[in-house]
Design a protein around this nucleic acid. Structure first.
Length: 810
RNA sequence: GGGCUCGUGGUCUAGCAGGUGAUGACGCCGCCUUCACGAGGCGGAGAUCAUGCGUUCGAAUCGCAUCGAGCCCA
C-alpha cells in the first residue's frame, strides 16, 4: 500500500497543549499537502462491493460556483461515508466541454467572429480556453477537500470521449433510433441553429393582439380574427373554431380569404381552440407556435414557409420578402390599416419562447434535421424503477416527458461540438456512415474509406452539422461504468449506484441519460438519483450577477476554511430543497469548529499519553451514560446518512458534541479526569475517536487532525465507520438524572447571583434508591448527601428534579 | 392555463408513515473574565405551526377550500 500520509501521528502524540484558537488555514493546508490522492483511487479488483457515482461533468466556465460546490459536497459526504462503510467507491470527474457558450466567449476574448477562422482553428481556440477553465475548477474542487478519483477523469472534447459519442451515434442509427427528417424544430434565428425543447425558455413580453378581418368566400361577409403575429399571414394555412362555439357553427367547412395575400383557407373545428381568447377564431400558420404544429399534423395541412433560417421573410411573403419579422409586422399592420382590415389592437402580456442562450424569440421552422426517437412509455416505466430522492422530483420528469411534442432534435449548426460522422453520396444521395475504425472523425476533413454501398459512388458531401452537447453528457453513466457497445457489457457494476444532480437539469441531463441508457443498454443507468436544491442569495432570490447577490465558495473558504463551507452545505437545509446562503450560518459553523477544537484541546491535556486498554475497564455510571448516548448517536447518524439526510446527521453530531459532551459530560467528569480516572479517560477517548470518524465525511480536514492525535497512524478517511455499541438504559436514566440535578443547582445559583463555582452548605438528595453523587459534588463544588425519602425535615430550598426531590442549603 | 414545492417564535430552519414539554441556529434579555473554550459559560423570554372547514379519542403532520410565495412547463 502506498504511504498515504506524510505526517505521522506520533508527532502529535507528545504531551502538548494545543493553541487556544483553531487555525483552520494551517491545518487544512497541512492535510492538503499530506494526503496522497491515490487513497481515493477506485480499485476494481478489491473484491469489495462497488459504489459507482455518475458525477456531473460541469460545463467548464472556469467558475466553480456555490451551487456546484453544494452539489459536490453532497457527493463527497456520500463518497467518504460509503468508503468507510466498506464499499469500493468510484468518484470520477468529467468535463462537459462542447457548446455554444464557449464559442461565444472565444469570439469575445479574441474579438473575432467564428466565420473569420477555419473551423479547425476556431475549435483549437475553444479547446485552449476550455483547458484553462478546467484547471481553475479542478483547483477549487481540491481545495474544498472533495475526494475525487482523478485517475478516472474524462474530458468530452478528448478524442477518446468523442469517439465514444460518435460510436453511440452509429449504434443508435443502425438500430433505427436515430433518423433524419424534414420536421419543424425550435430555431434560434440569431444563433442560426436548431435547438431542443430543453433549450427553449419562456419570458413574459408585452405585445399587441391585432383584430384582423378575413372575408368569407361563400357569402362575402367578414370574420374577425385576433393574432399577435400578423407577419405570419402569408403562412396561414387554415382557420379553426371550437366545435361548441355557437357564433361560428355555420362557418365550419367554409373557406376564408387571407387578407393582403389572398390564399383561400378552410375553417376547421377543434377542441383545442379557446373560445375566450380573442374572437374565438384562430388562424393556423406554419408555424407560429407548437399548437400550430399539432394542428398541422392532425389536419394534414400544407406547409407555407414564410420565415427563413436567419429570421427573414421568404418569397412567399411577396413584397415583404427579405424583411425581418418585426419590420414585416409593422408594414403588414400599416397596410391592413390602410385597407380598413385592421379593426383594433389590444395590448397583451404574453409568454414568448426564447433561446436559452441569447434570449432571442425562437421561431418554429421546418428543416432537415437529425432526431433521436423518444419512447415515452419506456422512459416513464424506467423512471419508476429508479429511486428518486426526494421522491417528488420524479413527477417533474414525468410531466416533462408527457409534454414533448416531437422527438429530440440532436443536430446543431455550430462548430465546437462532436461532428456527426456521416457523408452523403454525391451521385445517389445515400447516407454514408463512418466506419467504427475511423472514429473520431470530422467528415468535413476526412473522406470515407470505402465507396458508396448503394451505387458505388466515390464522391461525397460531408455532413456539416454537429451534435447537441447533451449527446455527449447523456453517456456519462455508461462511460464511467466502462460500457462496451460491442459486447454489451460493462467493466464495472452497471447500472451504477448513484446519479447526483440539480433539479434544474432533470428535463435535460436526467431525461437524456435515461433515454440513451435504455436505447443502448436496455436498462436504467443508475439505481438512485439524488437531487440537490439551488443555492439562493441572502435576499432569498436565486443568485445572479444582475442581482448582485452572488457569493463564491472561494470567498467563504478564504475567510473560514473548507470545513466550514462543507458544514454549511450539510446543515443549510433538507437535502433536495433550495438552500438560502447566509453568512450567519457560516459563522455558526465556524464557532462549532472552535468548540470542537476547545474540546480536543481540553481532552489532549488528559489523553496525550493515553494508551487505550485492550479490554474495556470497569466504568462508572456517568461514563456509561456518555457511551450509551454516543451509541445512540452512531445509530442516528448512520440512518441519516443512509437516507441522504446530511442536515440531520450533522445536526445530531453538533448537538451531541456541544451539549452532551462539552456542557454536561466534561463538567461532570472534569475532576475525575484530573485524577486520571481510567473509566473517565476511556470514555472520553472512545467518544472523541468515534466523533472523529463520524465527522470525517463532513469536515475531512478537522477530522483528520483530530484522528491523528488519537490513533496510531493512518488516515481517518481509510478507517472504518463506527459500529454502535450497546445502549445502557439504566445508566442513561441515572446519568440524565445526575445532569439534571447539576443543572437545577446551577439555575438556583444563577437566580440568586451566586457565582457558579461558589460552594453551598450542602445538597441533600431524597431518594430511596442508591445513586452516584461524586460527580454532582465535583460539578457543584458542594457536599452532596443521599437520604431516604422519608428521612425528616430540612432547612433549605426544595426543588423537584424529575421524580426526585433535592434540598439546597446555603 | 397546467404541474410541483412551500407557508412553523423578530429572521432562517427541523419535524409532516397523527399522540413531542414543536428542533436547532442567528438575534434578544439577565448573570458570570469559574483553572478546555469570552467568536465562551450559565440562566431566561419569545410560536394560537398562513386562514377556514373537515376526518379522528387526538392534527404542525391527513383531506378539501381560500390567501400568499417560489420553481418547472404550456
Amino acid at each position: 500500500m502506498t504511504q498515504i500520509l506524510k505526517y505521522h501521528s506520533h508527532i502529535n502524540k507528545q504531551p502538548m497543549r494545543l493553541p487556544k484558537k483553531y487555525d483552520y488555514d494551517t491545518v487544512e493546508r497541512k492535510w492538503l499537502d499530506a494526503w496522497d490522492e491515490s487513497m481515493y483511487y477506485f480499485d476494481h479488483a478489491s473484491g469489495k462491493e462497488q459504489y459507482i457515482i455518475d458525477t456531473p461533468p460541469p460545463y467548464p466556465t472556469g467558475d466553480f460556483h456555490i451551487g456546484n460546490a453544494l452539489n459536490w459536497c453532497y457527493i463527497d459526504f456520500l463518497a467518504r461515508y460509503k468508503r468507510m462503510r466498506g464499499y469500493e467507491v468510484m468518484f470520477p470527474q468529467g468535463w462537459d466541454c462542447h457548446g455554444l457558450p464557449t464559442e461565444v466567449k472565444v469570439e469575445e476574448i479574441h474579438g473575432i467572429s467564428r466565420h473569420q477562422l477555419s473551423k479547425h482553428e476556431f475549435r483549437a481556440l475553444c479547446e485552449e480556453l476550455t483547458a484553462r477553465n478546467i484547471e481553475q475548477m479542478r483547483a477549487m474542487m481540491k481545495r474544498l477537500g472533495i475526494s475525487i478519483d482523478w485517475s478516472h477523469e474524462y474530458i468530452t472534447m478528448d478524442d477518446s470521449y468523442m469517439r465514444y459519442t460518435q460510436l453511440s451515434f452509429l449504434k443508435m442509427y443502425k438500430a433505427g433510433l436515430i433518423y433524419q427528417a424534414e420536421h419543424p424544430v425550435n430555431w434560434c434565428p440569431r444563433c442560426e441553429t436548431a435547438i431542443a425543447f430543453a433549450e427553449v425558455e419562456y419570458e413574459d413580453r408585452d405585445s399587441y393582439l391585432n383584430y384582423i378581418l378575413f372575408r368569407r368566400v361563400d357569402n362575402g361577409s367578414y370574420v374577425e380574427i385576433a393574432t399577435t403575429r400578423p407577419e405570419l399571414l402569408a403562412s396561414c394555412v387554415a382557420v379553426a373554431v371550437h366545435p361548441d362555439d355557437d357564433r361560428y357553427k355555420d362557418m365550419i367547412g367554409s373557406e376564408l380569404e387571407v387578407p393582403l395575400f389572398g390564399q383561400r383557407v378552410r375553417v376547421y373545428q377543434d377542441d383545442a381552440v379557446d373560445p375566450e381568447f380573442g374572437t374565438g377564431v384562430v388562424m393556423i400558420c406554419t408555424f407560429g407556435d407548437r399548437q400550430d404544429v399539432r394542428w398541422w399534423k392532425q389536419h394534414d395541412l400544407p406547409l407555407r414557409v414564410s420565415i427563413d433560417e436567419r429570421g427573414r421573410m421568404t418569397s412567399i411573403a411577396g413584397k415583404y420578402a427579405g424583411l425581418d419579422t418585426l419590420e414585416c409586422r409593422k408594414r403588414i399592420l400599416s397596410d391592413l390599416s390602410d385597407s380598413d382590415l385592421l379593426m383594433r389592437q389590444e395590448s397583451i402580456r404574453q409568454n414568448v419562447g426564447v433561446c436559452w442562450r441569447c434570449k432571442t424569440p425562437i421561431e418554429i421552422i421546418s428543416t432537415r434535421q437529425w432526431f433521436v426517437r423518444v419512447n415515452k412509455e419506456e422512459i416513464l416505466k424506467a423512471a419508476k424503477e429508479i429511486n428518486w430522492y426526494p421522491h417528488h422530483f420524479r413527477l417533474r420528469l414525468e410531466n416533462w416527458v408527457q409534454s414533448m411534442d416531437w422527438d429530440w432534435c440532436i443536430s446543431r449548426q455550430r462548430i465546437f461540438s462532436v461532428p456527426i460522422p456521416v457523408w452523403y453520396c454525391k451521385r445517389c444521395g445515400a447516407v454514408k456512415l463512418a466506419e467504427e475504425s475511423q472514429l473520431p472523425v470530422d467528415p468535413v476533413v476526412k473522406s470515407p474509406d470505402t465507396p458508396c454501398s448503394n451505387c458505388g459512388g466515390t464522391e461525397f458531401e460531408p455532413e456539416h452539422d454537429v451534435l447537441d452537447t447533451w449527446m455527449d453528457s447523456s453517456l456519462t453513466a455508461l462511460w464511467t461504468a466502462g460500457w462496451h457497445f460491442d459486447t454489451c457489457e460493462a467493466e464495472f457494476q452497471f447500472p451504477v449506484a448513484l446519479r447526483p444532480q440539480g433539479h434544474d437539469i432533470i428535463r435535460t441531463w436526467a431525461f437524456y441519460s435515461i433515454l440513451r441508457s435504455l436505447a443502448l443498454t436496455r436498462t436504467i443507468p443508475w439505481h438512485n438519483i439524488l437531487i440537490n436544491g439551488m443555492v439562493l442569495g441572502e435576499d432569498g432570490y436565486k443568485m445572479s450577477k444582475s442581482r448582485h447577490n452572488t457569493v463564491s465558495p472561494d470567498e467563504v473558504i478564504q475567510k473560514y476554511g473548507a470545513d466550514v463551507f462543507r458544514q454549511w452545505a450539510a446543515i443549510g437545509g433538507a437535502t433536495g430543497s433550495d438552500v438560502q446562503f447566509r453568512w450567519k450560518d457560516i459563522i455558526a459553523a465556524s464557532k462549532f469548529m472552535q468548540k470542537l477544537w476547545s474540546i480536543l484541546r481540553f481532552s489532549m491535556i488528559h489523553l496525550a499519553d493515553y494508551e487505550p486498554p485492550a479490554k474495556e475497564p470497569e466504568l462508572e455510571v456517568v461514563d456509561r451514560w456518555l457511551l450509551s448516548q454516543l451509541n445512540r448517536l452512531v445509530i442516528t447518524v448512520t440512518e441519516a446518512m443512509d437516507g441522504y439526510q446530511f442536515d440531520e446527521a450533522m445536526k445530531s453530531i453538533r448537538s451531541f458534541a456541544w451539549y452532551v459532551l462539552a456542557d454536561d459530560y466534561i463538567e461532570l467528569a472534569k475532576s475525575r479526569l484530573y485524577g486520571r480516572s481510567p473509566s473517565a479517560r476511556y470514555a472520553l477517548y472512545q467518544t472523541l475517536k468515534t466523533l472523529s470518524l463520524m465527522l470525517a465525511p463532513f469536515i475531512p480536514f478537522f477530522a483528520e487532525e483530530m484522528y491523528s492525535y488519537l490513533s496510531e497512524g493512518g488516515s481517518v478517511h481509510m478507517a472504518k465507520w463506527p459500529q454502535p455499541g450497546k445502549i445502557d438504559t439504566d445508566a442513561e436514566a441515572e446519568g440524565e438524572l445526575i445532569a439534571a440535578i447539576v443543572r437545577a443547582v446551577r439555575r438556583y445559583k444563577s437566580e440568586r447571583g451566586i457565582p457558579l463555582n461558589a460552594a453551598l452548605k450542602r445538597i441533600v438528595i431524597l431518594s430511596d434508591t442508591d445513586m452516584s453523587t461524586g460527580d454532582i459534588a465535583n460539578a457543584t463544588a458542594t457536599t452532596v448527601e443521599l437520604k431516604n425519602n422519608d428521612a425528616g425535615t430540612y432547612e433549605g430550598t426544595v426543588i423537584d428534579v424529575k421524580e426526585l426531590r433535592i434540598i439546597i442549603e446555603e
